[in-house]
Design a protein around this nucleic acid. Structure first.
Length: 607
DNA sequence: CCCCCCCC
C-alpha cells in the first residue's frame, strides 16, 4: 500500500527539503492567468492539507492527459518552496512521479487538516512518519514504525539543489516562475541559455535596436529583451551559459506566437535594471526543454514554435540559397527520428548549417524550432532557436539507447514525406480544391507560396496560345521572335538562333467533387498530361491540325495527383491567385482509396 | 518598443 509522507507539508513550509516526499493530490484548479495556464493543487500528506502547491507548467500535459487527476498519489522528485508576499509559502512541483492513479485510489486518504503555519505546528504530535512504497525495508528495520528519511533535511532550505538563496546584498532570491507584473521588488538568479544577435528595426512606430536572452533557473524560464541604451549597457555583459543576478526589469504579457518558453510573461530591461554576474551557480540548470514527441507534430499549428529531440538519422549537404529578398545564405536539411517511429525534416541555416556534423548520427535537442507545413510537416530553425548535440539529459540517453538497439532500422513514418515515405505520391498534404480555396492558400501574403496536392480531373484545356517558340539557349526558354528569314531572335540572350524549341504553357481547368480551378502547366507537367512532347505537338500544330485537336481531346477527363503551388501575383495593381502545377502523377486508385479511408477514420475519431 | 527568419 502506498503511504503518504505524514507531516511533510509542515516540514517543507518550515524550510526543510526532504527527498521524494509522497503526497496525495486532492483537487486541482486551473488558475486563469493569460494564455499560459497553471494548476494550483490541494495536496495532502495524510496529516495536513494545503492549497499552496502549484504545478510547474511543463507538467501541465500530465493533467491534460489525466495522468495527474484528483486523489492520485505522487512522489515529488523535484520541487521548491518559496515565500511570496512577505510570508505566504508557495510550493512549486517541478517534477513528479505518479505512484497511484486517482481512479486506483478513489478517495481522500485519512482526515488531513488544513495547514496553518501559525497554529498547527505547536500542537504537533511527535510521531510524524515517513512511509513510502519505495522503502519497504526501512519500515521493517524500525519495527514496523516507518522513520523519516534520514537524508531529508540535509539539503538547504528553499532551493533544492543549492542555488543561491541570497542576493549579493543579502536579499532573497526569487524564482523566475513566480515573477509577474504585480511584483515590483525582486531579484532572480538566472542562467543565460540563449542570446540573440543585435538587431535593428524600423517601422511606423519608430526605430531602434535590440537583443534578447533566454533566462532560466530551477523554477522556470523567461525571455528578456534589451532595447537601445539597455542593449549598449548589457550586450557584452550577458554571455551564454553564465549566471547573473537580475533585478528591476519590467514584466509584461508574453506573446506566445513568438516563443515557446514556459512563461506567460517576458522581461524588458529598463534604466532601473541591475545585472551582476553570479559565481555561485552550479545548481542553476543548463537548459529547460518541453519536448514534443514527433508523432504529435501533425497536431501542432503551422508556425508554432516547439522543442523537439531526435536522433539525426540523415544529414544532407549544405547548399546555397537565394532568398526572396535577394540575400544569399546556406542551408542544410537533416532528418531526425524519435521513438514514436516518426521522422521529420529539420532545416538548419547559416553557420549552424555549415558546422553541423551528422555523420555520427548524434542526438539533437532543439529549443524553439518553427513548424512548417511543407511536404506535410517539417521544422526550420529561426533566430531564436538553439540546439544541443548529444546533450547530457535523460531524454537524449534514452533516445540514443533506443536508436542503437534497433530504432535505427525501424521503418519510420516520414512526416516530411519527400523521400518515398508512408504516403508516397507527389508529396505535400492532400486537400480538395474546395479546401484549398477555403484555407485561402497563397493568400496570406504577397510573394508567399503555398503548396498542396489534390486528386483532380482535367476538365478543359485552352488550346489557343498553349505553346510558343522558345530560345534554344541553355536554360533560357524565353519566347523568340521569328525574323522570317530563318532566324529567331532572343531578347534576353540578345542574339539570333537558326532554330528554336517548342515550349508548352498550358492553361488547364481542373475539377474535383468540391470545386474547380484554373492552373498553369509548363513543359514537363503539360507533356505528361497531353501524352505528347512539345516538339511533336509543335509539328502537329503546323502540319496536322486534326492530330493536334485529338491530343487535346484525349487529354481531357483524366485524373491525376497534382502538386500545386499557389501564390498571389500582382499585375497592374491587380492581385490574383495564380496556381501552377509543379508535379503530376496518375492517381493510383488503391492509394487514393487508402487515403480516403484514413481520412474517414480520422473524421470519425477512429484514428 | 521586436516578432523579419530564408529554399524547395
Amino acid at each position: 500500500m502506498t503511504e503518504l509522507t505524514r507531516g511533510v507539508i509542515g516540514d517543507i513550509t518550515e524550510g526543510a527539503h526532504p527527498d521524494n516526499p509522497v503526497l496525495q493530490i486532492l483537487s486541482m484548479k486551473k488558475i486563469p492567468s493569460g494564455e499560459q495556464e497553471r494548476y494550483r493543487l490541494l495536496v495532502s500528506d495524510g496529516q495536513y492539507s494545503s492549497s499552496f502547491a502549484m504545478l510547474a507548467t511543463q507538467l501541465n500535459s500530465k493533467v491534460q492527459s489525466n495522468e495527474i487527476s484528483n486523489n492520485c498519489i505522487v512522489k515529488m522528485v523535484r520541487y521548491l518552496c518559496n515565500t511570496v508576499q512577505e510570508s505566504k509559502k508557495v510550493l512549486i512541483i517541478l517534477d513528479l512521479e505518479v505512484l497511484k492513479s486517482g481512479s486506483e485510489v478513489g478517495h481522500k486518504i485519512g482526515e488531513p487538516v488544513n495547514y496553518d503555519p501559525n497554529k498547527i505546528r505547536q500542537e504537533l504530535e511527535p510521531s510524524r512518519q515517513m512511509m513510502s512504497m519505495a522503502q519497504p525495508q526501512a519500515s521493517k528495520q524500525s519495527g514496523g514504525v516507518p522513520q523519516r528519511n534520514p537524508l531529508a533535511q540535509r539539503n538547504p532550505p528553499n532551493y533544492g539543489s543549492g542555488s543561491p538563496s541570497k542576493t549579493p546584498n543579502g536579499g532573497r532570491v526569487h524564482c523566475i516562475a513566480a515573477l509577474s507584473p504585480y511584483q515590483n521588488k525582486w531579484t532572480v538568479c538566472a542562467r543565460v541559455t540563449n542570446k540573440s544577435a543585435p538587431r535593428t528595426w524600423s517601422n511606423s512606430r519608430g526605430e531602434g535596436k535590440l537583443f534578447s536572452v533566454d533566462l532560466i533557473d530551477e523554477s522556470g524560464e523567461i525571455r528578456a529583451t534589451a532595447f537601445n541604451e539597455q542593449m549598449d549597457k548589457f550586450y557584452d555583459l550577458l554571455e551564454i551559459n553564465k549566471v547573473y543576478y537580475i533585478s528591476g526589469a519590467t514584466l509584461k504579457q508574453a506573446n506566445k506566437q513568438y516563443s515557446n518558453l514556459n512563461n506567460e510573461y517576458e522581461m524588458t530591461f529598463n534604466r532601473m535594471t541591475e545585472i551582476t554576474p553570479c559565481h555561485d551557480s552550479t545548481a542553476i540548470p543548463m537548459m529547460q526543454y518541453s519536448f514534443v514527441s514527433l508523432d504529435q507534430l501533425d497536431k501542432v499549428n503551422k508556425d508554432s514554435i516547439v522543442d523537439v529531440i531526435g536522433v539525426c538519422k540523415d544529414s544532407m549537404e549544405v547548399v546555397n540559397i537565394n532568398t526572396r529578398t535577394g540575400r544569399e545564405t546556406k542551408k542544410r536539411d537533416i532528418q531526425i527520428v524519435d521513438d514514436s517511429n516518426r521522422e521529420v525534416r529539420v532545416t538548419l541555416w547559416g553557420v549552424s548549417a555549415e558546422s553541423f556534423d551528422g555523420s555520427q548520427q548524434p542526438v539533437i535537442a532543439i529549443k524553439g524550432a518553427k513548424v512548417s507545413d511543407y511536404n506535410g510537416v517539417s521544422l526550420s530553425l529561426v533566430s531564436s532557436s538553439s540546439f544541443q548535440i548529444n546533450p547530457d539529459i535523460s531524454e537524449a540517453h534514452k533516445l540514443k539507447g533506443w536508436f542503437d538497439n534497433g530504432g535505427n532500422s525501424i521503418d519510420t513514418i516520414n512526416l516530411s514525406n519527400q523521400r518515398g515515405g508512408a504516403s508516397g505520391g507527389v508529396g505535400t498534404v492532400f486537400k480538395t480544391l474546395g479546401e484549398a480555396k477555403l484555407e485561402n492558400l497563397g493568400g496570406r501574403a504577397a510573394d508567399q507560396a503555398d503548396y498542396y496536392s489534390v486528386s483532380a480531373t482535367v476538365s478543359f484545356i485552352r488550346k489557343d496560345n498553349c505553346m510558343y517558340p522558345a530560345c534554344p539557349g541553355e536554360g533560357c526558354n524565353k519566347k523568340v521572335l521569328d525574323l522570317n528569314n530563318g532566324l529567331y531572335r532572343c531578347e534576353k540572350c540578345n542574339r539570333e538562333y537558326d532554330t528554336f524549341n517548342w515550349r508548352l504553357m498550358l492553361s488547364v481547368n481542373l475539377a474535383d467533387i468540391t470545386d474547380q480551378v484554373w492552373v498553369t502547366m509548363f513543359q514537363d507537367q503539360a507533356e505528361i498530361v497531353l501524352g505528347s512532347t512539345a516538339q511533336e505537338l509543335g509539328t502537329m500544330k503546323d502540319n496536322n491540325k486534326e492530330a493536334f485537336d485529338k491530343v487535346m481531346m484525349d487529354a481531357a477527363f483524366k485524373t491525376y495527383n497534382f502538386k500545386i503551388r499557389v501564390k498571389m501575383e500582382t499585375y497592374n495593381d491587380e492581385s490574383r491567385l495564380k496556381s501552377v502545377v509543379v508535379g503530376v502523377t496518375p492517381t493510383d486508385p488503391k492509394e487514393y482509396a487508402r487515403r480516403l479511408i484514413s481520412e474517414i477514420k480520422q473524421l470519425s475519431g477512429q484514428a
